[in-house]
């Protein structure tokens, strides 16, 4: 039997699930089963790649048992590897270096360029500049030099306010 998800590999995991009150049979290869989060009672709604992340971490750097733990919530790096979940906001600071390679692998990049809380808006302009630089690169690539010049002016303006261009 072929895996229902990738339709390529041989399905070697066969499960019965209750979906919307009815039993449904699911046949998956082990890779798809893992990436779809089977093995947990519920999956498939949230941003839901948590288990996958733990696995990535365990293969990545810093998988050695370091005993390092978060001073905010006490969670250890090994615990994060095992459940793919951060314990609190401070975990990100404590384990930043260990997380970085996996974050890059998942998202391609590791620097936020989107909105920020209203309270933080005045504090930093760096991510606005990062976003504008992305747009600038696109504009240059498309040879839209008028737009590129506009964006460059915007970057200068923000960096004068205190951002790091």
């Amino acid at each position: 039997m072929i895996c229902q998800n990738c339709n390529k590999n041989e399905a070697n995991m066969h499960m019965k699930r209750i979906i919307n009150g009815r039993a449904a049979e699911v046949h998956l290869c082990s890779d798809c089963a893992r990436s779809l989060g089977y093995g947990e009672a519920f999956s498939g709604f949230g941003l839901g790649l948590g288990e996958l992340f733990g696995e990535l971490l365990s293969k990545g750097e810093g998988s050695a048992n370091t005993g390092l733990h978060c001073h905010g919530c006490g969670k250890t790096f090994d615990e994060i590897v095992s459940d793919g979940k951060m314990g609190c906001a401070e975990c990100y600071g404590v384990f930043y270096d260990k997380l970085l390679p996996s974050l890059r692998r998942i998202h391609g990049k590791a620097t936020h360029v989107g909105t920020k809380p209203v309270k933080n808006e005045s504090i930093s302009y760096d991510s606005q500049i990062a976003e504008l630089k992305q747009k600038l690169a696109v504009a240059v690539e498309e040879q839209n030099f008028e737009l590129a010049a506009q964006i460059r002016d915007e970057i200068n303006e923000i960096s004068q306010k205190g951002g790091n261009a």
Binding site: G46, L47, G48, L49, G50, L52, F53, G84, K85, M86, C88, A89, Y92, G93, L99, S102, L103, I106, H107, A110, T111, H112, V113, G114, T115, K116, P117, V118, K119, N120, I123, S124, D126, S127
Partner: peptide, 28 residues
Amino acid sequence: LSQKLDFAFDDKLGYLTQDPTALGTGMK
């Protein structure tokens, strides 16, 4: 909400989420 509440946010990583795969915008 962000005016009333202090959100967990980092300039580099964006909105901090329990699941690191939602990090950044936290938007789906």
